[in-house]
Design a protein around this nucleic acid. Structure first.
Lengths: 113, 113
DNA sequence: TGGTTATATAACGCAACAGGTATATACGGT
DNA sequence: ACCGTATATACCTGTTGCGTTATATAACCA
């Protein structure tokens, strides 16, 4: 999953979080993460490129500015992955499970869900 | 979020996926990802260490074997992050939003959820 | 206790990555 | 056309990270 690969970086995650509030220009984003992480405009620009190439964000030239936005499908992918891993706890524990596994899980589980 | 940092790697994500089916020994995991990614036992072991230190997995010595399992909280964190980014589309688009932003979003959105 | 299996660590090389400065490119205004 | 702003790219460098082989540590078994 290209998406999660790209999101394995604090700066890039922050960029996506900023975009969660709506579209922002590359400049606004660069300023924001620049301030928070102390990185330069080119550095921010390259993070945006990574996100773009991973399909996490979209960008549209708007005059002299370039507007970035999050691609909903990307967020869905992340959520779907988490859910896929999570399915385990949501009941349906068929075959494969060993007694030991079950026992340990019982020992561990008394919260969540 | 330490968790997503650790998950920014295909091998580690695969390990977590394998653990989604229940607990597995370090050996089983090493064999599996070893076969799939062509990496050695020590390599797998180090990936497990990263996951452990990031709080993504737990490990318990079970005799000569060490059993690994996914920590539900870690998966929750991922899901929560995705949801947090996602909140944007689920209605509530107050201020900040420009007409342009709204337009672009409309253009883009016709699927999801 | 000696051997075997399971897992982790050590030491090291190499490739990928992120960051910086300098610069190119594109657009808008005047 | 020219200048200033916005954004991206080039190029170089330092660091990080992953992989490998060799080895240590620990448990189980005969």
């Amino acid at each position: 999953m290209q998406v999660m690969d790209a999101l394995g970086d604090p700066v890039r995650r922050r960029l996506v979080e900023l975009l969660a509030d709506g579209e922002r220009s590359a400049g606004q984003l660069a300023t924001a993460v620049g301030a928070e992480f102390g990185i330069s405009q080119p550095a921010a620009s390259r993070h945006l490129r990574v996100l773009r190439e991973a399909g996490v964000v979209d960008s549209v030239p708007q005059g002299a500015v370039r507007l970035y936005s999050v691609r909903p499908e990307a967020v869905d992918e992340v959520e779907a992955w988490a859910r896929r891993v999570r399915r385990f706890w949501d009941g349906h524990l068929d075959a494969l499970e060993t007694e030991i596994a079950r026992g340990a899980r019982m020992r561990r589980r008394h919260d969540d869900d």
